[in-house]
Amino acid sequence: MKKKGLLLGCLLFVFLHISGQDRYQLGIIPQINNEFSLGDRYELNSKIEMRQLLKDGPSDISAQKGFHFERSDFETILNRKLSSLDGIGLGYLLRIEEGQIIHRFIQQFAHVQNKVGFRLAHRFRGDETLEDGAWSFRLRYRLSFEKPLSGLQIDPHEFYLKINNEYLPTYAEKQLDIEIRLLVSLGYNFSEKMRLESGLDYRAENIVAKNTEHQCWLNLGWFHSF
């Protein structure tokens, strides 16, 4: 009961906050993530992600895009494994948004910890984005928690819970800001090589600036390893 009350309180807080003068966006993000093993040391990860906006507002201050296919991301990261649970990666993302092409360069270090009954993953990432001739820079830290809903480890044909919490300090147009993301998703493990996840992804952008935007996305993820 306490947990339900806390969750309800958080949701109420978010919606009350949104109902003020902050902007909001609601939509769907499907993504396909494929991993190709390149020997013992290297692997290539490719991700295709698309954003379908369903609604935005309020009408007086939002971009008023409405129901709208917003953007497509094509990301590739070459990951060098330091161990079976740690790796460093370099990557590139191509974004097509409203007819405009955006380039992003990515560097990351990831470390996964096996605990009794759950796993934790720490991802440290830096990225540099070139959009309209201007650069923006972000430093990102994401903590992921994964817990099987049956037993102590995720076996084939079992469900699991995944929670991501990410902090993204951003430097753009000579201004510092921060974005925070929280994803809660339910996953299904078809096999050791294939998973399907679906969950709610809440993002708060431009928290320092006065035009904070709250986003809520229905996330659909398909993960496959070759």
């Binding site: 499907p30 295709i48 296919f69 079992e158 398909w222």
Partner: peptide
Amino acid sequence: TLLFFLLFCLPYVETKGQEKLEREY
């Protein structure tokens, strides 16, 4: 978006028979 998702995902569906039977719950 949905068509794209389905077209790319469906070919990857594997059959149960290919898996190793080892699980705890």
